[in-house]
Design a binder for these strands. Structure first.
Lengths: 204, 204
DNA sequence: GCATTTCGTCCCCTATAGGAAACTTTTTCC
DNA sequence: GGAAAAAGTTTCCTATAGGGGACGAAATGC
């Protein structure tokens, strides 16, 4: 249906955030093509009729929420704005982070970051479990720096948090720290073993 | 669809997906009540019928995407304004850190919260270490609810996270979870001992 | 107490969503 | 180019979504 324009406000409840039929159809068609699926294949995977899918893609129908939901799952579509709230209302968790390779890993010389709760894409804070590899302190050279704030909790090991404007901070298991991540910072493990920390980052 | 929580992992595998009819209905009813609207008022604002809204809330229909879209907008189940707000507010200029020491304590029947890094007052995330006291599960009655998002990491012990829209989530040491704290939630320790968790809360 | 108002549910009718199959268009071989 | 297969569209029918109003239930007033 066309955007509803109310008499009183003169405002169009337009598809600024939630996609309207036309955009939705295009999104779905693009996503299907992207995955190299035919109407038949995609429809079957989503357990809907191929004619229905055709109509949706061509904006010739007003599909039910349920149908759209199945399509989004099948096509692994980026959650549109409409679903932001429902995604936030969801919970995302996992048993011991070390068990499965479910989290997104990012490994460098110094760190091994694992992003937690990746099922939830709309979250504003980013929780990581990071391993700070035991290595030579003298190699330390460049700051990490990103606009926002960061909270860190030491799960195990001993480390030193170096920051641009403050003296190095020795930390051990159970310690925590909060800082502006726009300030250059970085960690070095001070024992022979890797240190494990929980990081929660808020980008601004 | 309900979030799939397997016996083995206790994980919500599909937590980030669009809600099924039942959860969707609850969400919408909650959102409407939250705004203090009657069926009639909400329906009129969303340009749909009262009966339709009633059926949706009671999961007696399979509403169209368009209808849900209008309801989301009316009930402000989207968050565009929030993002604008956060973009406007500048970060706290203060560059500081603080070791976790004696924080502010807040004790209830169920919890013992300790706010960390209290020297920094301008921070946007609130990190807590909380002790969840071992007590009778049957006493559990009311939700905690505050606009924002929350990340939780289990330091030690066994507990169950109860949420308004999802099945209870068993958690143990090393587990983590992320959720919309506007959704009612609460924890109960399931072992004889108190459980210790790290909580990072972001108020919106 | 009963009358009145207000909120939510249920019933009924019409318009249409969704699926099967017919039909059309495009692609792929030979 | 032509036949055959595959992909996409349209047609047709049935089930049901959506909305108006009746009905019921709960709150409020007298």
């Amino acid at each position: 249906m066309e955007p509803v324009i109310t008499e009183e406000t003169g405002l169009a409840l337009e598809a600024a955030e939630a996609p309207d039929g036309e955009i939705l159809g295009k999104m779905i068609r693009d996503a299907r093509k992207e995955k190299g699926l035919t109407l038949e294949e995609a429809a079957k995977a989503a357990a809907i009729g191929r004619s229905t899918l055709s109509k949706i893609e061509n904006n010739q129908t007003r599909p039910s929420f349920e149908i759209i939901r199945r399509l989004m799952q099948t096509l692994e579509l980026e959650t549109p704005q409409l679903f932001v709230q429902s995604a936030q209302s969801s919970i995302s968790g996992r048993r011991d982070y070390t068990l499965s390779g479910r989290g997104e890993h990012q490994e460098t010389k110094t760190y091994d970051h694992e992003l937690l709760c990746t099922e939830l894409t709309s979250k504003r804070m980013l929780p990581y479990i990071s391993t700070i590899k035991a290595r030579d302190v003298t190699e330390y050279d460049s700051w990490v720096r990103h606009r926002g704030e960061e909270f860190m909790y030491v799960i195990s090991g001993d480390l030193v948090l170096y920051t641009e404007h403050y003296r190095p901070l020795k930390m051990t298991s159970g310690d925590s720290v909060y800082y502006d991540s726009g300030m250059g910072h970085g960690c070095v493990s001070t024992s022979d073993e890797d240190a494990k920390v929980l990081w929660v980052s808020l980008e601004l």
